[in-house]
């Protein structure tokens, strides 16, 4: 029997309604509320505990609530966390999402919940949990719980999933290649899609274009008063590639000293990048790292000072997660040397 932990709010945990929404997290043995219906449909699994927390408490004391819940989880054996279903309830969706995220990110416990597509929690938490596409009100409880049970059974049994659409959950921002069961060729798929598009019939694209989220711009800074570091995604390394930087799909960065140099000469530095023509860099590495120009700007008083290392990775085919991690690592490293701004050159 695999242990499962359920999460419900004060209302579905039968503590009370709005008046009890400030209810602090409580760990109860066994399945409570909708978790009982879930328990009835689980195979080889037992809901050992139910965590109950008031939605307002979670919303207004998020950190405290999560710490308490983390305290529960730390002590318990848990193969899966099942929260909700949360329907279209905004605060409940937030609570379920936060608890799922906590379970997955801190304890690597797979987590699932159910929300209606209108619930803001979907966008906030779909990358941290399996969020099943649920009904908008508790009138859909029976079906939502059944869907949760079906996915929970699959996850607990380690069965391969067929994809977000087929399993009925919101995509987690993970794209995976699959061989189609019927081996239908891309030629047939493309021509059929074209005929549908021409006739104005519905069709389903296989690649949905999504917009990236934005970071607000920082206020301007005066570089003549700052210490500046140069970062490049060009794969520029000393000849011989001492750290074996890969030609693509970088998972690590390297740094090389430039403090004692004025220029980079042909033959001293090369690019190992596999995504563009590196012949120009072989001819003159300063096509990637304009070292003489940076030094001249320091002498001309336009740059306060130059950090004595440049940082390099290979930008092509680098996984987003790796890129984010490396950016953080580089920022942390240059901050040790009081760097205050970065020039990043890409290819």
């Amino acid at each position: 029997m695999k242990p499962v932990i359920a999460y419900v709010n004060q209302f579905f945990g039968q503590i009370g309604g709005e008046d009890k929404a400030d209810y602090a997290p409580e760990l109860r043995t066994g399945a409570a509320g909708p978790a009982q219906a879930l328990q009835a449909q689980l195979k080889d699994a037992e809901i050992t505990h139910t965590i109950i927390c008031g939605d307002n408490f979670m919303a207004s004391h998020t950190e405290q609530a999560l710490e308490q819940i983390a305290g529960f989880l730390k002590e318990l054996d848990c193969a899966l966390l099942a929260a909700g279903p949360a329907f279209n309830a905004g605060r409940y969706g937030f609570s379920c999402g936060e608890v799922c995220k906590l379970a997955w990110e801190r304890f690597h416990i797979p987590a699932l919940t159910s929300m209606n597509e209108g619930n803001p929690g979907v966008e906030l938490y779909r990358k941290s949990a399996y969020i099943l596409k649920g009904h908008d009100t508790a009138a859909g409880m029976r079906k939502d719980v059944a869907a949760m049970a079906a996915l929970a059974n699959k996850l607990l049994a380690g069965e391969p999933l067929l994809g977000a659409d087929a399993e009925g959950y919101f995509g987690r921002g993970i794209r995976k290649e699959v061989i189609l069961k019927d081996h239908r060729s891309a030629a047939d798929r493309a021509v059929d899609m074209l005929l549908h598009k021409l006739r104005g019939e519905p069709f389903q694209t296989e690649f949905l274009v999504e917009q990236e989220d934005r970071v607000p711009p920082l206020p301007p800074v005066d570089p003549s008063k700052l210490r500046i570091a140069f970062v490049t995604t060009s794969g520029l390394v000393p000849a011989g590639n001492p750290d074996h930087l890969p030609s693509g799909g970088s998972t690590f960065w390297a740094r090389y000293e430039i403090g004692n140099r004025e220029t980079l000469e042909k033959g001293e530095f090369i690019s190992v990048h596999g995504g563009y023509n590196t012949g120009y860099a072989a001819e003159n590495p300063m096509v990637l790292l304009p070292l003489d120009a940076l030094k001249q700007h320091v002498r001309d008083g336009h740059i306060g000072s130059l950090h004595p290392y440049y940082y390099v990775l290979t930008g092509n085919q680098t996984a987003k997660g790796d890129a984010v991690r490396m950016a953080r690592e580089i920022v942390a490293k240059v901050r040790e040397d009081a760097v205050q701004a970065i020039i990043l050159g890409s290819t």
Binding site: L161, R172, R175, V178, A186, R189
Partner: peptide, 9 residues
């Protein structure tokens, strides 16, 4: 040729 596609998971 491809009998593959990419799906959300």
């Amino acid at each position: 040729w491809s009998d593959k596609t990419v799906k959300d998971f």
